[in-house]
Computed example of a mutant assay.
Amino acid sequence: MITLLNSGVYSSIQDNGRWGFQQYGMIVSGAMDRNALKIGNLLVGNEQDEAGIEITYGLTTIQFESDRLVAITGADASPLLNGKTAPMWRPFSVKAGDQLQFQGALSGVRSYVVCAGGFDIPIVLNSKSTYEKAKIGGYYGRPLKSGDTVALLPMNEWQHQLFSKLHERKQHLEWSVNFGDFCCFRKQNTLHVIPTGQHYLFDEESISYFENAIFTVSNHADRMGCHLQSKKPLQLSNQRELLSEAIAFGTIQVPPSGMPMILLADRQTTGGYPKIGQVMSADFSVLAQMKPTDQIQFRYIDVEQAEQALLKQYKAFQQIKQAIAYKLKQI
C-alpha cells in the first residue's frame, strides 16, 4: 500500500487506455506518455499495460507502507527518496516507511511512478485509467488527493528476488534506460504532421504559416488538449459548417479563434472543428511532455515517413526491452 502525503498539482492512476469503446462515446484516456509508462513497467517486471501514477509538474510526496520494487520514468521532477536523490529510468527498492518526494519538474511535465505487482484498482471497461468526468477508473474515478491510500497487488517470485538483491546492495544501479529515441525534453521541438483530408480547406497563406511559424504552448494545456498561440490565426478559404468525425491523439483542430489545439489523451471521441493535420505517433512522447511557454514548429511529412519513424521507434523499444531483461538477470 502507498499513501499520498501530498498529491501535488495533478496525480492520477493511468494505464495504456480504455480502447474499443469510442463508438459508444467513451474516451480512451490513459497515460499521456505511454512510452515512459511502458518502460517503467518493464523495469519492475510488470506487464507493459499495467497502471502507474502519472504525476504532473511534480510536487507530490508518496509514502510506501510496504517493501516494494519501484521505477520512476518520464519528466525529471527532482525526485528524492528519504531526502536523497532518487534514481530515474532504473529499478530500485523501497522499504515500509520510505518517502518519495517530487520537488518540481526540471524538464518535461509528466513523471510516472510504477510499482512491482501493480495497483489494486478495479478494472472498468478493460482499463484502470482514471476518467474524471465520468467518475470511473483510477481511485474512485477521480485524481489522487492528499491522504489517499492505494493498495498494491502482490509481487511475484521474480520481483521479490530482484527486490532482495537490490536491497542487499544498498546502492543504485550504474545503468539506466536511454530514452532519447522517444523523447527530448527541450523548450522548442519539431512535431511532424501528416496533412488531413481537411487540410485543403485552409487558405494558402495559413498553410504556409503553419509550417514556418513558431507556436507557443499556452496555459490552457491539460490532458484533453494542448492549446497553442501564435502571432497570426489560421483561416479557412471559405467559412463552412463541418460534420463531426472521429479524432485521435495528436489531431490538430483549428477552432474559430484560428489558434490550433492538439488533442491529447482525454480528448472527446468526435470533433467538428476543421483539422489541419495529425501529429505522427512517433512524436507523441515529445508532445506529452511539453509545458506552457514551450515552443513548437511543425513539419509536414507523408504517411510513409510517419510509418518509418514509428518502425524505428518500435525497434528501439524492443532493444530496450531486451537490454532491460539482460541487465536485470545480471543483478
Rank of each mutant, 00 (worst) to 15 (best):
W175Y: 15
F182I: 04
H160E: 11
G197M: 15
C115H: 02
S129T: 14
E174N: 14
Q171D: 10
F179S: 05
F182D: 00
P122G: 10
K232A: 04
A221V: 08
L191M: 05
K135N: 07
R186N: 05
R186M: 03
S230T: 10
R169S: 15
S218D: 14
I207N: 08
K145I: 04
I207P: 00
T130K: 03
L228R: 01
K165I: 06
S129Y: 03
S146V: 14
W175V: 06
I194L: 12
G141Q: 00
G180T: 11
Y209V: 05
V150D: 06
T190A: 13
C183G: 00
Y200M: 11
T196E: 08
N212Q: 15
L162D: 01
V217Y: 02
S146F: 14
G141I: 00
K232D: 10
A221Y: 07
Y139T: 09
W175E: 09
L201F: 06
R186Y: 12
Q188D: 10
L152V: 08
V150S: 08
Y131F: 09
V124E: 01
Y140K: 13
N126T: 10
E157G: 05
H227R: 15
L228M: 12
F185I: 10
Q171T: 15
K232E: 15
S208E: 12
T196L: 04
T196Y: 03
E168K: 13
D222N: 11
W158I: 05
N219K: 05
V177A: 00
K187T: 09
C115S: 11
E211L: 12
K232W: 08
T130M: 08
H192Q: 09
Q229M: 10
D148E: 08
N156Y: 12
G225L: 10
H220S: 15
P195W: 12
S146Y: 04
S164G: 08
E157M: 10
D203G: 04
L162I: 07
K231V: 04
H220G: 02
L144R: 00
A221H: 05
P122S: 09
H172R: 02
R142A: 01
F179N: 01
Y139L: 15
Y140H: 15
A116W: 01
P122H: 10
T130C: 14
N126A: 12
D222Y: 13
D203A: 09
Y139M: 15
I136H: 01
D181F: 11
V114N: 09
K128S: 14
P154V: 03
D120C: 08
F163M: 07
S127T: 09
K145W: 09
P122E: 13
I214S: 15
K231M: 09
S230P: 02
G117K: 05
K145T: 05
C184F: 02
H192C: 12
E174Y: 06
F182E: 00
L153G: 01
S164N: 04
N156M: 11
L162E: 01
T216C: 04
S176K: 14
R223C: 12
S176M: 08
D181V: 00
K128C: 13
G180I: 02
C184T: 09
S206A: 07
L144H: 00
K133A: 13
G147S: 10
R169F: 12
A134W: 02
N178Y: 06
L191V: 04
I121V: 12
L125N: 03
I121R: 01
G225V: 09
M224K: 06
